[in-house]
């Protein structure tokens, strides 16, 4: 039992760091935002393993659904790619 528990915790922790790094490095913001949602998903599983079901439920409801949707709406209203606006800055210099 302790093997399974330890292995699961270590795997989830590594996955957490990897997905967070992916969210920071990704240039396509939609992918980055979905990765942030995945961080919340893994985090809620970790909370469940740490015997905090209340916190896990909150993180699942708010972190995964609502925060991701708020980010997606913002991306729809602004630009999707991170370097997209660098071109407009280039244009500004030309003017």
């Amino acid at each position: 039992m302790i093997y399974v528990y330890t292995g699961a915790i270590v795997l989830l922790a590594m996955l957490l760091v990897y997905v967070a790094l992916y969210a920071i490095r990704q240039k396509d913001l939609l992918y980055a935002v979905i990765a942030t949602g995945v961080v919340s998903l893994i985090l809620s599983i970790v909370f469940l393993m740490l015997q905090a079901p209340d916190v896990a439920l909150t993180e699942a409801a708010i972190g995964i659904a609502l925060t991701t949707i708020a980010f997606v709406i913002t991306i729809r209203n602004t630009a999707r790619y991170e370097n997209d606006n660098a071109q407009s800055g280039f244009n500004n210099k030309k003017e």
Partner: peptide
């Protein structure tokens, strides 16, 4: 693994806030 991943998340977030120029990336951080 638990403390390390928590501290790594905090450090990654602060890195994004300090380095990134894109505002949505800063909010993600």
């Amino acid at each position: 693994s638990v403390y390390g991943s928590a501290i790594a998340l905090i450090l990654i977030g602060i890195y994004a806030v300090l380095i990134k120029k894109h505002l949505i990336k800063i909010v993600i951080g």
